[in-house]
């Protein structure tokens, strides 16, 4: 436990009347892929936005390599090597691939001029290293397929050389081919010692590339399992019922049952 890169302790978050996170604990070990699963509105994105500095928690603590940290912006989390690829890609459609990878960190020459050539070269090198295949880094991202766009978003996150990479449903809305491509990318990261937290509704992919899987339900972490010791059915059961240990079941109807078909269907 003490070797964890990141430890989140008793994280609390309210949005008005919505109690989105109710004392959540989560650890990430170096170089592991941790699946984060749960129903719609379970709090997965919120928990990860707390870790990436995009949201300030109401309570709880984050330890980075054992030391307490407090992030008030994504920039502060970035300094520690924590990057997040948000659910909606967060790309600028009007810019090209290279510009999206270097968004806000334009390489500069002569003090004031953006060094376009250096930016293109670095972007090409980056994409090549990640084995992401694009026709040209000067193509506007609006012209790219969903899979390519996701790859560009991941490439941008990786260009910060993060120790921890958070991916929020990176394969939602992707074709099987593009999904495979993104999962290969994530599996590759492991070789480079990057810790990955993968939010997903598709249990198959969590089981394909994950080491552990954490289950959130209604703002609580109800279970953490080693993937190799668990089955998809068991995790699905935990997602739906919250497990035997969750008393919330009895007094709270399952409100988002419609989301249950997608994990198996995907």
């Amino acid at each position: 436990m003490t070797s964890a890169v990141v430890e989140m302790r008793a994280i609390e978050k309210h949005f008005g009347a919505v109690h989105a996170l109710r004392g959540v604990d989560l650890d990430l070990l170096p170089g592991e892929v941790l699946g984060l699963v749960g129903d719609n509105a379970a709090g997965k994105s919120t928990l990860m936005k707390v870790l990436s500095g995009a949201i300030s928690p109401d309570g709880g603590q984050i330890l980075f390599r054992g030391a307490p940290v407090r992030f008030t912006s994504p920039a502060e989390a970035r300094v520690r090597g924590i990057e997040m690829v948000y659910q909606d890609f967060a790309l600028c459609n009007n810019l090209d691939i290279a510009q999206n990878i270097f968004l806000g960190r334009w390489p500069v020459r002569a003090g004031v001029l953006v060094d376009r050539r250096a930016m293109h070269r670095a972007a090409e090198a980056m994409l090549e290293r990640l084995r992401i295949d694009v026709p040209s880094v000067t193509v506007q991202v609006r012209h790219l397929s969903g899979g390519r766009r996701q790859s560009v978003a991941i490439a941008r996150a990786l260009s910060f050389n993060p120790a921890v990479l958070i991916l929020d449903e990176p394969t939602a809305n992707l074709s099987p081919g593009a999904t495979h491509e993104v999962l290969r990318l994530v599996a590759d990261l492991k070789q480079h010692g990057v810790g990955v937290i993968l939010i997903s509704h598709r249990l198959q992919e969590v089981f394909a590339i994950g080491d552990r899987v954490a289950v959130l339900k209604q703002g609580r972490r109800v279970a953490t399992r080693r993937v190799r010791d668990a089955t998809e059915d068991e995790i699905l059961e935990l997602i739906v019922t919250g497990g035997r240990a969750a008393p919330a079941n009895s007094d709270r109807p399952l409100d988002a049952g419609g989301g249950l078909e997608s994990p198996v269907g995907g």
Binding site: A54, P74, A75, R78, Y86, A90, L91, L103, G104, R105
Partner: peptide
């Protein structure tokens, strides 16, 4: 939003 998250 993307610009803000990227530190612009």
């Amino acid at each position: 939003e993307a610009s803000h998250l990227s530190g612009i």
